[in-house]
Computed example of a mutant assay.
Amino acid sequence: MAAQRRGASIRIFLIDGTPQGMRLVERIGWTGCCLSFSRSDYDRARHRAELQRSGVYVLVGADPQGARPVRIYIGEGEEVRTRLDTHVREKDFWSSAFVLTTKDDSLNKAHIRYLEARLIAMAQAAQIAAVENSTNPAALGRLSESETSDMEAYLDEALILLPLLGVTAFEIYDEPDASAAAQVTKNDQAQIAGRRYRLKTQLTEAEGYSDSRGFAVLAGALARREAKVMVPGYQKIREELIAERVLVGVNDQQYRLARTFIFDSPSSAASVLAGGSKNGRTEWKDDQGRTIRENEEATAASPA
């Protein structure tokens, strides 16, 4: 039987008493932790015990080239502080840091090199942030089977914490396994099926559904090549997807979506694919011809 996800309790300690200050994030039953702080707070953060331990870290800042909303750098250190001291002097782009370590300093050099390599590979695959790292360290495969399992378990926990702190660069989209529906009730199956929507306009054909991170459009969607007037923000997204070959040309009239992509809204998805401003809540329709708006209104009107 497939494992079911359970609720998780996360403890976020505001070290300075403010949400903008240093934060220590922990989870009950996990020896790991994450310390987050801004670059302006580094003078105080560098004296904390977490930075004197071995661990991995993620530096985040605006992408100077504008190719992505943010740029990140992933590193490791047997004493994280030593590496961050260097980055303060040599890297200008970052404004925030997120340090992943353990409360008992149980990560060794092989562990942190493995975690660094996995995080770099995940960030490069997700293509959400510009990755400052030029190469992926050849660290995978150097751990025993049991240690690899332990580090993968560590990553599972860390990847729950990072999005809570606004770090989404490692969120690789996986299409839900259709067989998973067999593990839920018939009512749940109906709800799952109701999330699938289709967009069909001139030269545009796509399938997608609402996701907790936005609106997911499945790989293989066809988009109109000729663009009309649209919201500047949508135009920028379209240009970036073309430049990054997420939208690739298939003929002189259409692009194809090379991989599943999560847009920030149904309207963003519809506009980018159709090459013109669209109201996604009325353009995307399910198998019964109902729009997203109609389904949302029906949900709101249903008995509690």
Rank of each mutant, 00 (worst) to 15 (best):
M1L: 08
A2P: 10
A3G: 13
R5M: 12
R5P: 01
R5L: 15
G7A: 07
A8Y: 06
R11G: 02
G21V: 08
G21Y: 10
R27Y: 01
C33P: 04
S38Y: 06
R39S: 03
R46E: 15
A49P: 05
Q52E: 09
A62W: 03
A67L: 14
R68E: 11
V70P: 07
R71M: 15
I74W: 01
E76Y: 08
E78S: 14
V88K: 10
D92E: 11
D92K: 13
L100Y: 09
L100Q: 02
L100K: 00
A110V: 11
I112P: 00
E116G: 00
E116Y: 05
A117E: 02
I120G: 00
A121T: 12
A121G: 10
M122V: 14
M122R: 14
A123Y: 00
A125S: 10
A125V: 04
L140M: 08
R142P: 01
L143S: 05
S146K: 08
S146M: 11
D150F: 08
D156F: 10
I160Q: 03
I160P: 02
P163L: 12
T168N: 09
A169H: 08
E171G: 10
Y173I: 11
D174V: 15
A182W: 13
K186H: 13
A190W: 12
A193Q: 09
A193S: 11
R196P: 00
R198F: 15
K200L: 13
Q202V: 15
L203K: 12
A206P: 03
D211I: 05
L218P: 03
G220Y: 03
A221D: 03
A221F: 02
R224Y: 04
V231A: 13
P232Q: 04
P232R: 04
G233R: 13
Q235H: 14
K236F: 12
K236E: 13
E239G: 03
E244P: 02
E244D: 10
V250T: 00
V250L: 04
D252A: 06
Y255E: 07
A258E: 15
A269M: 03
A270M: 07
V272A: 07
A274G: 05
G276D: 14
N279P: 07
G280Q: 02
R281E: 02
R281K: 13
W284L: 06
K285Y: 04
G289L: 01
E297T: 12
A304H: 10
